[in-house]
Design a protein around this nucleic acid. Structure first.
Length: 528
RNA sequence: GCGCUCGUGGCUCAAUUGGAUAGAGCAACAGACUUCGGAUCUGUAGGUUAUAGGUUCGACUCCUAUCGAGCGUGCCA
């Protein structure tokens, strides 16, 4: 819709212009502050320029009127144009707002270590990434989703050690020397019970079995993580193993060496990342020849860029922000355009329950488990709450509020609007097909605004995706639902003179809500 | 100390990325069912956008300083 307007305006005006939505719909559907920027150059007041520009549009058929108010140029769309749009949208149904893009994107997210169950902080990035992918695909981008499994480093060894020590503690007479760092939480003991079932308790007698337990435990945890993700309705296309990637470490290493990006000092190999804006150079290979975690990401991004996507998006926890510079510098040294990589940070989450801090799970070792929260409030409410906030700000929410089934719970508010429309159709005894060909005309002001708002979905999706600010979608749906509830309270639909028109309008609203919710992974109910 | 992110009604968040009178929800108060679902709607109240300067037609948004918060500042991942 926005594009049609842009084209219509372009025909009359030569200069670059920005199209925006006016603060108040009574001004018009679209507006441009173009006159302000021209004021300097033409040495005339913005108001006069706007008046002059206005006259050029007297003939355009898309617009019902074009007016100049306080320097702004306001465009009001014609009924005919809006009606055509509505008919198409309703027919498209779930395909509404679909687009075509010739761009491939590799989206990496979650990538939680396979050393324990997912906690609530992981969940935020997971929901955000999944929804970003769904919206992107709807808009026509070719998106590959990927999970980077850190199955190589010392964390996985620590998992094995923790399980082993738990086994020694529980199934042998030996005293346990607990190290300073190990994984706590009852899930370690659960794992150790499982290990005993599978291998017999003798496995806890010999320390040589630790590495076996590491690999075994990592697989268990990865399986658990996939289960957790499924609970939230999330599935990945690829899982990439850090361990597997290390097989091609030599190739990446040689590349960096050839670019003069490495040097040796104190028996270690360093990356000259400070040359590319990092605070300091970083070690990639330790004295004992073991590569660092950064080495893993170097290979991974080398691998990613060899697959030649147009864009790369990583969603990382906010505590990784210091890590961006070094990965980007590595990408640069590898000979790729580091600007193709975009990192979205997902901030911490604090949970409340009835105003009190949410009880941490002992099972997880004093983290809040994602699965516990989903059991309590459901995956849809969890998804919704994460999507109503910008990803890069701290978020605090109370699970009690999301359990309430009334207006304080926005997800019900939106679903209720959708269900309501369904009920109205039932009451009328008509179907969408019965009213699709009716022409929407001479609607009152409220109905016209509702019509226009419902048609905004495509550009809202575009905007939400491009700016990576998915809260724009939830905000839009809330607004649309509110407009419908207001409309419903004001107008009697069934049995009115223009029943078919109002039904068609309702159907359009339902379509937008349905598409929007489904992209967020939420079902649009036809009955509450 | 340095770096990054941020600071908006009592609470949780928006604000078309520099645009029109800073908007929603919750909580509070006052109202609306002979009507298609009241899981709704209509009102009222609540703001010097942390503070002080600056940039310009125009600033919550950009710049500088100060105050405050979170994170980072491993050869952990």
């Amino acid at each position: 819709m926005k594009k049609s307007v842009q084209n219509a305006v372009k025909k009359q005006i030569d200069s670059e212009f920005i199209l925006e939505k006016p603060k108040d719909l009574s001004f018009g559907h679209y507006a441009t502050p173009l006159a302000f920027s021209l004021a300097k150059e033409l040495r005339k007041s913005p108001m006069i320029i706007a008046d002059e520009l206005c006259l050029k549009f007297s003939e355009a058929s898309v617009f019902e009127s074009v007016t100049a108010i306080k320097g702004y140029l306001n465009f009001k769309l014609s009924d005919k144009f809006l009606n055509e749009r509505a008919t198409v949208a309703i027919k498209e149904n779930l395909e509404f707002a679909k687009g075509e893009k010739n761009e491939t994107i590799l989206l990496e997210y979650v990538s939680a270590n396979p050393t324990g169950p997912m906690h609530i902080g992981h969940a935020r990035g997971a929901v955000f990434g999944d929804t970003l992918a769904k919206i992107g695909e709807h808009l026509g981008y070719k998106i590959t989703t990927e999970y980077y499994v850190n199955d190589a480093g010392s964390q996985v060894e620590m998992l094995g050690l923790s399980v082993f020590l738990a086994g020694v503690d529980k199934y042998t007479n030996k005293d346990v020397q607990w190290p300073e760092e190990y994984y706590r939480g009852e899930y370690i003991y659960e794992l150790c019970d499982e290990a005993k079932e599978e291998f017999g308790k003798d496995i806890f007698l010999d320390e040589k079995n630790i590495s076996k337990l590491s690999t075994w435990g990592k697989d268990k945890m990865l399986f658990l993580i996939k289960e957790n993700l499924k609970m939230a309705g999330i599935e990945f296309q690829n899982f990439v193993s850090e361990k597997e990637l290390f097989k091609s470490w030599d190739a990446s290493y040689e590349k960096l060496k050839a670019k003069d990006a490495l040097y040796e000092k104190d028996g270690k190999i360093w990356l000259k990342s400070s040359k590319m804006g990092d605070e300091k150079d970083r070690v990639v290979v330790r004295e004992d020849k073991r590569p660092t975690y950064l080495a893993g990401d170097i290979i991974y991004h080398d691998d990613k860029f060899q697959r030649e996507y147009h864009r790369y998006i990583n969603i990382w926890g906010a505590d990784h922000h210091g890590y961006i510079a070094r990965v980007k510098s590595a990408i640069h040294f590898l000979g790729y355009d580091e600007n193709k990589l975009e990192v979205i940070l997902s901030q911490m989450v604090a949970l409340l329950k009835g105003g009190e801090p949410y009880k941490m799970s002992k099972r997880a070792g004093n983290f809040i488990l994602m699965s516990d929260v989903i059991d309590e409030i459901g995956s849809e409410a969890l998804r919704f709450i994460f999507l109503t906030k910008k990803s890069d700000t701290h978020l605090e929410f109370d699970v009690e509020l999301l359990k309430q089934q009334d207006s304080s719970n926005p997800i019900y508010y939106i679903q209720y609007a959708h269900a309501r429309i369904n009920q109205v159709f039932q009451k009328s005894g008509k179907s969408v097909d019965d009213v699709i060909d009716v022409e929407l005309k001479e609607l009152d002001e409220d109905s016209k605004n509702l019509l226009f708002t419902a048609l905004l979905l495509p550009e809202i999706l575009e905007d939400a995706f491009e700016s990576r600010q998915l809260q724009k979608l939830t905000e839009y749906l809330r607004n649309l639902a509110a407009s419908y509830h207001q409309f419903y309270n004001k107008h009697k639909i069934v049995g009115s003179d223009n029943e078919d028109e109002l039904l068609k309008l309702s159907s359009l609203v339902a379509t937008s809500i349905r598409v929007g919710l489904s992209l967020m992974g939420i079902e649009a109910k036809s009955k509450m």
